[in-house]
Every structure is written in C-alpha cells, then in structure tokens.
C-alpha cells in the first residue's frame, strides 16, 4: 500500500514549474521567475545531499555525529536569521544562538524525554526531524520578531523616547514594541493551530500518512509538534530579543 515515486517521474513536478514561470513572464516579473528557479535548484541540491546524509546518519546512529549535525543545523538557522534580518552579525550572533538553543533544547527534551522516549534517546530518526521542525519555525519567528522589533525601535524613536521621558526604564520603554513584534510572530502559529485538521493537514502529518502510518499515530505527533512549536517560537524569539536589546541599548 506504500507507493514510492519512481525517480524518473519526478520530472513532472519540475515540468510543472512552467506554470509559474509562464505567469511571471506574462506579468513581466522576470526577477521572481529567476528567484523561484534558483530556490528550487538550491532546494534540490540540499535535499539530495540531506537524503544521502540522513541515510548515513540513520545507519550509523552515533551520538556524537547526531549532536554535531544538530550544531550545524542551529548554526545555519542562526546564520539565516542574521542574514535575512540584516542585523549586525557580531552583536546578534550570541543572543540569537542562546534563544534558538534554549527554545529547541526545552521542547526537544520534552518530546524525546517524556513523550516519545525512543531507544536510544539520540536516535537520529526522531531527534533530527523533530529538532529540524522546531528550529525551522523558531527561525521564521525570529526573523519576524527581530525585524519588526528593531525596525520599530528605529522608526518610532520619538515614541520610544516619549516613554523614557515619562519615566519608563529602557526595558519598559521597549516593551510596547516587543509586544507588537511577538504577537506578529505568534499570530500565524496560533491561527494555524486553530485551523489544523479542518482547513489543512500539516506537512508532517500528510507525510506520515502518505508514508503509510496510521492516522491516529500521525495525529498524536501533530498535536505534540504544534504545541511544541508555539512554545519554542515564543521562548526563542523572546530570549533573542531581550538579550540583543541589552547590547543595542548600551550602544
């Protein structure tokens, strides 16, 4: 009952790209065409690499190799956040790193230690996709929060100063901006949690079901993942903002 896709049939999904490219051409948006094709090429290379890498990783299932791979994932997430938000890399590297590590470590230990309890605990089949999912969402959250927050702090400097002049501490004056940025980052996650199951089936659940898992099994994982993501996103964004804010206000 498990239908693997023969590799040669993959050509059709790439061929389907003619549709967006055609639309972009008609709308005179060649730049977006190029961006899309470049992104697809990049994704293909990365996923082929990952597929082989994961096969090796799953086979060896070595504690240190798995942990080393997690470190690489965290660093890439960090790098991506700093690049996309155009934050000064030196000042923001450690704050974002601490945020990502704290949120991810907390939720990963909840998943691995309490819920799934795989043998061995560092089993790559669980550890790596789960942490990948948490990190991916934390990464998006961090991009939104850092961008929003520091943009507001620059653009609405007068408002910030008004709060300071009204007697706010540095942190108190920044808090209204922090609230706005956090709700902007969490609103999509919360909305997604609320509509999951009716409007859409999340990628992970779809993947599990397509790969032949029992839907009830997939649902349990999905509940765990969605709640975990919301918490991890909140913790990682809050910490990276608070820690970077101290450095920002000192300058």
């Amino acid at each position: 009952m498990n239908f693997d896709i023969p590799i040669e049939r993959m050509i059709w999904v790439y061929a389907a790209l003619i549709v967006p490219v055609g639309i972009f051409y008609a709308l005179k948006m060649p730049a977006l065409s190029k961006d899309l094709l470049m992104a697809v090429a990049k994704m293909t290379v990365q996923l082929i690499f990952i597929a082989f890498y994961l096969v090796v990783l799953f086979d060896l299932n070595n504690l240190w190799l798995n942990l080393a791979w997690l470190v690489v994932m965290v660093l890439i997430a960090n790098w991506t956040i700093l690049g996309r938000t155009k934050m000064p890399k030196k000042a923001f590297f450690f704050p974002v790193l601490i945020g990502l590590l704290s949120g991810t470590a907390l939720i990963a230990s909840l998943f691995i230690g309490l819920l799934i309890q795989p043998e061995p605990w560092f089993d790559a089949r669980y550890l790596i996709p789960l942490i990948g999912m948490i990190l991916g969402n934390s990464m998006q959250g961090n991009v939104i929060v850092l961008e929003r927050f520091y943009h507001a702090m620059e653009q609405r400097r007068e408002e910030y100063l008004s709060y300071v002049f009204m007697g706010a501490t540095d942190f108190e004056a920044a808090r209204p901006f922090l609230r706005e940025a956090l709700s902007a980052a969490l609103a999509p996650t919360i909305a997604m949690i609320g509509t999951t199951g009716i409007v859409f089936l999340p990628g992970m659940m779809t993947g599990q079901i397509l790969a032949g898992a029992d839907p009830t099994e997939a649902v349990k994982y999905q509940i765990m993942i969605l709640i975990g993501i919301a918490i991890a996103v909140l913790i990682s964004t809050l910490l990276s903002t608070l820690i970077s804010l101290r450095a920002y206000q000192r300058q």
Partner: peptide
C-alpha cells in the same frame, strides 16, 4: 503623545505600567 492602538483606557494606563 503615543496613545497605542488600543482603547483610551489602555492609553491612559500606559505610563502606570512603569515602575
């Protein structure tokens, strides 16, 4: 003066969040 995006009550209470 920044009054925020909420109600007038919230705007009035804003500085009282400060220690």
């Amino acid at each position: 003066a920044p009054l925020g995006i909420g109600t007038v009550r919230e705007a009035l209470l804003l500085p009282f969040e400060f220690k």
